Each structure stands twice: as structure tokens, then as C-alpha cells.
Amino acid sequence: MPAYWISSYRAIDDAERMAAYAALAVPALTGAGGRFLARGLPEQVYEAGLEERVVLIEFDSVEAARAAHDTPAYQEALAALGDGAERDIRIVPGA
């Protein structure tokens, strides 16, 4: 069953650290089997109406998404980001 890695950025405090993170995270996550389905600011919001940057990545399974997070390459990306952003990351199984 596929799984989805959903990142919501509540705040980006350091654009340079964010850029360094993205340069490392994209190849780390695609190299671990992730497929970027969406990323950016919403075109439309409803309900709570939060204008947050969102990233949606599909993996083959929850286990694959967890393993991608724990790879040395992604850990390097996290170190580059440091405290440059406040975000929420969730891994959700597909239906």
C-alpha cells in the first residue's frame, strides 16, 4: 500500500538554510524511492485557511517512507536545515 509523506511549513526562518536543505533533501528522498507529487503554497484554502508551504511525497509503503527519513543522505539534509524552518511532517498510509 502506498504511503504519503506530508510536510507543512509553519514558518521558514532562514531562506539560505532552506535552500541548502532542499538541495540535499530532494535527491535523498527520490533516491530512496520517493516521488514528489506536489510542493509549494496552496492555490486555494478552505476551513482553517492556512497559507503554508506543503510538500507531498509518495512512497511504496510506510516502511519505505520511514526508511527514507532515516537514511544518512536525508539526515545530512536535516542537519543543513537546522532551525531554519518550523514544520510538521507526517507519514500517512494510502487508502
Rank of each mutant, 00 (worst) to 15 (best):
R10P: 00
A32C: 09
T71C: 15
A28V: 03
I89N: 06
I12S: 06
I91G: 07
A77V: 03
F36K: 11
A15Q: 13
E47V: 01
S8P: 07
L78P: 11
L29W: 12
T71L: 13
D60C: 01
V92W: 07
Y46V: 03
A22D: 01
D88E: 03
G82Q: 10
D83A: 00
V55W: 05
E86I: 08
D14Y: 13
V26A: 04
E58L: 12
T71G: 12
Q75N: 12
A79M: 05
I57T: 04
L41H: 11
A32Q: 06
I89C: 05
A77K: 00
A22E: 01
P93A: 15
A20D: 13
E86L: 08
L50R: 14
A68I: 08
D14N: 12
V45P: 05
L41W: 09
V26N: 01
D83M: 02
A65E: 15
P72S: 14
A15S: 09
P2L: 12
G94C: 05
A20L: 09
R66D: 14
L78V: 12
A19N: 05
A64D: 02
D60S: 02
D88W: 05
G82D: 12
M18C: 08
P93E: 15
F59T: 11
A20Y: 11
L41S: 11
A38S: 15
A65M: 15
L56P: 09
L81A: 03
D83P: 15
R35T: 15
A20P: 10
M18D: 06
M1L: 04
D70T: 07
D60R: 02
A85Q: 10
T30S: 11
Y4R: 08
V54N: 04
E43G: 14
Y4S: 07
T30G: 09
V26S: 02
I89Q: 06
G82H: 10
R39C: 00
E63S: 08
L81Q: 05
P42V: 06
H69P: 12
Y9M: 05
Q44T: 06
G84K: 11
L41M: 14
A15P: 01
V54R: 10
G33D: 08
L24M: 10
T71R: 13
S61D: 15
P72V: 11
E58Y: 03
R35C: 10
R66Q: 15
H69D: 14
